[in-house]
Design a protein around this nucleic acid. Structure first.
Lengths: 160, 160
DNA sequence: CTTGACCTTCAACTTAACTGAAACGTTACG
DNA sequence: CGTAACGTTTCAGTTAAGTTGAAGGTCAAG
C-alpha cells in the first residue's frame, strides 16, 4: 500500500509517517521503482503500537529502542524492564501531582479563610508568607538593600 | 540590588531573571543611570512566587495573567478560579495516569502469563492483539486455531 | 592603566514531536 | 494533452522555558 492508504488506515498524517521512518521507528518500508514508499499491513500494526506506547507515556526514543525489527521477536527482558520502569515513573509523577494538589487545596483554603476583620492587603501577606514558608516584609517601611553581611541562610523552599 | 545579588538570593540565574522580565512576569525593575537593573526586595518574593507556581503546574503564561503588579492587590476571584481549575487539571491528569498505569500493569501481566507450551512468536501475537484490542494477522500462512483463544475477552484497552 | 568582576543587548541554540510549504516527479482520467 | 490527485525531498517553523555566547559598557582595586 502507498503512504496515503497507510495514513488513512492509521489515522496519522503522511508527514507523521515519514517522520517516524526518518526517526528510525518504522523500518518496514520498501520503495517501488518510481520512488514511492510501499508498506505491508504490518506497518499498520507498528504505527498503532507507536501511538499506543506514546499514550502510555513512552517517548519516541524509548519506543525506538524497544521496537523489534520483527514484530514477533521482542527483546522480552528489556521490554519488561522498560514497562516496569515506566510504571515506577508514573507512580513518581502521581506522587508529585498529589503533593501539588495538596498544596493548591491548602492554598485555596487559606485564601478563603480570611478573617472577617482582616483587609485584603493583610490577607495577601498572610497567604503569601504561608505559601512561601517564610516571613514576608510588611511593605510600609523603607527598603534596605545594604549587603551588610553574607551568610544569612534561610530554609530552602519546599520542592513540590 | 543588582541582578547578581537578586540571582544569589533566589537561586535563579541572571539570564532567567532577565527572561522573566522580558516575558512580562517581573515588572518591578528600575534602571540606574549606567543602565544596570536595580531591584527592591519585593523582586525576591515575586521570583519565589513564580517558581512556586511553576512547581504547582502553572505555565508562565498563566502566572503572568494572575500575578498582580502590586503584591498586595490580587485579583481575588480570578486567582481562586485559576487555582480551582488547576486542581481539576491535576485530577484529570491523575485519572489519565491511573489508566496508563493500569494498562501497563495489565500488559506486564499479559506478557508474563505466557502459557508454558506457547512459543515466543505466538505469545507476541497474543499480547499484541490484546494490547491493540483487535485481531492481529498471523504471518506466513500459519493459522492460529487454538480453539479457546478468545475466551477471556477483557475489556478493551481505553485510549489514554 | 590594566585586570577582573560585573553589567548590557541580541541572536541563536536547545528538546520533542511533529507540521507545512516549496518545488518537483508520477499516475489516472477524460 | 491537460489537470487533478497522488507521491517525493528538503527545509523551515512551531511551543516552552529557558541557556549560551558574542561583543561590548561600567566599575573598583592595585
Amino acid at each position: 500500500m502507498n503512504i496515503g492508504e497507510l495514513a488513512k488506515r492509521t489515522g496519522l498524517t503522511n508527514s507523521r509517517i515519514r517522520f517516524y521512518e526518518s526517526a528510525g521507528l518504522l523500518k518496514t518500508v520498501d520503495r517501488r521503482p518510481n520512488g514511492y514508499r510501499t508498506y505491508s499491513s504490518d506497518a499498520v500494526l507498528v504505527l498503532e503500537l507507536i501511538t499506543t506506547a506514546q499514550k502510555a507515556g513512552f517517548t519516541l526514543d524509548e519506543i525506538r529502542t524497544l521496537l523489534p525489527s520483527d514484530l514477533e521477536r521482542w527483546e522480552h527482558d528489556a521490554l519488561l524492564d522498560a514497562l516496569r520502569k515506566k510504571v515506577r515513573d508514573i507512580e513518581a509523577l502521581e506522587h508529585r501531582l498529589a503533593e501539588s494538589k495538596a498544596q493548591l487545596v491548602g492554598l485555596i483554603g487559606d485564601i478563603e479563610a480570611k478573617p472577617g476583620d482582616m483587609d485584603c492587603a493583610a490577607n495577601a501577606r498572610r497567604v503569601l508568607s504561608r505559601m512561601l514558608g517564610k516571613a514576608v516584609d510588611t511593605p510600609t517601611g523603607a527598603v534596605d538593600d545594604k549587603p551588610a553581611g553574607k551568610a544569612m541562610r534561610r530554609p530552602r523552599a519546599r520542592a513540590v
